[in-house]
């Protein structure tokens, strides 16, 4: 019985939060890795793209709520999401037209594009702050829990409760759908195949008549969709704050590098690796251990390896380990 309680506590405090966070990171890392694979640079504005998409979606959500439209038990933000994605797509396509295209045609070195993306980052962060400011914003509505801790306790008779928040379930479902759609698109459609061809060998792809402008435009739209979805899910699960999204850049890049830059499958794996390591290292294990071990063996300390403030150190440490021992990542990524 005690082991069962330990398992429930583990699921409740470690597994479910880490899985939801991992799904959000995976979506973010997918966007970063697609830009890397097809446009061939590390996009420092990716976190700000996520923030902009979320900010637009928040405004649309508030608009829908003001009109009295809600989504029943689900958060209204999901209704606003498609529109948010469309607006974010317009922004990134416009950015590409005004900013990035020039350098692509001049065949500028990737590192120049990275510097350019810093400028885009400044502008996008200003736009986001113009739209919604810098404060913490909660925009979740609808039912709060799918499984309530108290109901679970009554149903199972266990001491430990298990709670599954709506936002966590939605994160996993939406992320699953998005990834499935992306892989179907990349593997089964003509445009998707031309994107992969472009990523593998640009010159050969151009030679076989693939239209680069189309590939680039489709990539940006997919990136906008992934970034907005990731940002909205993260905001629903936690809350929206412009600066937090900038800080997500580190775990997202770490996830993409761990999985192998440019490799979509790797980005997903990397997202979960980073998220689970962060939660496992910063969680105080005392509660779980107290159930699993006989009373006199339970140590007095919290059994927390690191305080939560150091979660960035975890992504960083994993990143360094991968850089030292397997620089191309867990799945083989590109090495330019």
């Amino acid at each position: 019985m005690d082991l069962l309680n330990a398992l429930v506590a583990f699921l409740n405090f470690v597994f479910i939060p880490a899985a939801a966070y991992g799904a959000q990171l995976a979506l973010g890392a997918l966007g970063a890795t697609l830009i890397y694979g097809i446009l061939r640079f590390s996009n420092f504005a990716h976190g700000e793209t996520m923030a902009f998409g979320t900010a637009v979606t928040i405004l649309l959500t508030f608009g829908l709520q003001a009109m009295g439209l809600t989504f029943g038990p689900l958060p209204t933000a999901l209704l606003a999401l498609p529109m948010g994605i469309a607006l974010t797509s317009l922004l990134v396509l416009g950015t590409d037209r005004v900013v990035y295209r020039f350098y692509r045609e001049a065949r500028a070195a990737p590192v120049i594009l990275v510097v350019v993306s810093m400028g885009v980052m400044f502008i996008m962060s200003a736009l986001t702050r113009f739209l919604v400011g810098v404060e913490d914003i909660q925009f979740t509505d609808g039912a709060r829990f799918v499984i309530n801790a108290r109901d679970f306790r009554e149903w199972s008779g266990l001491e430990e409760g298990l709670a599954l928040r709506t936002t966590q379930l939605i994160t996993l479902v939406v992320a699953g759908l998005a990834v499935a759609a992306l892989f179907w698109f990349l593997n089964r459609t003509r445009t998707g195949k031309s994107m992969r061809a472009f990523s593998d060998n640009e010159d050969l792809a151009l030679l076989s008549g693939i239209n680069p402008n189309r590939v680039v435009a489709v990539t940006w739209i997919i990136v906008a969709a992934l970034a907005t979805t990731a940002g909205v899910l993260y905001g629903l699960d936690k809350s929206f704050k412009a600066f937090t999204y900038f800080q997500l850049l580190l775990p997202i890049f770490a996830a993409a590098v761990v999985g192998g830059l440019g490799n979509p499958l790797g980005a997903i794996a990397g997202g979960f690796v980073i998220a689970f390591s962060e939660v496992v290292v910063t969680y105080a294990w005392k509660q779980v251990v107290a159930y699993a071990l006989p009373g006199e063996w339970v140590p007095a300390s919290l059994l927390q390896l690191m305080s939560t403030e150091y979660k960035f150190a975890v992504s960083f440490a994993i990143l360094i380990l991968v850089l030292l021992f397997k620089p191309t990542g867990l799945f083989k990524g590109q090495s330019v």
Binding site: A254, V257, L319
Partner: peptide, 24 residues
Amino acid sequence: KTALGLRSDYLAIATLGIAEIILA
């Protein structure tokens, strides 16, 4: 010592990380 000698992007990401950790 860890990030140099690898790709230029890796140094960028590593320095981004070390700055966050120092501040933490």
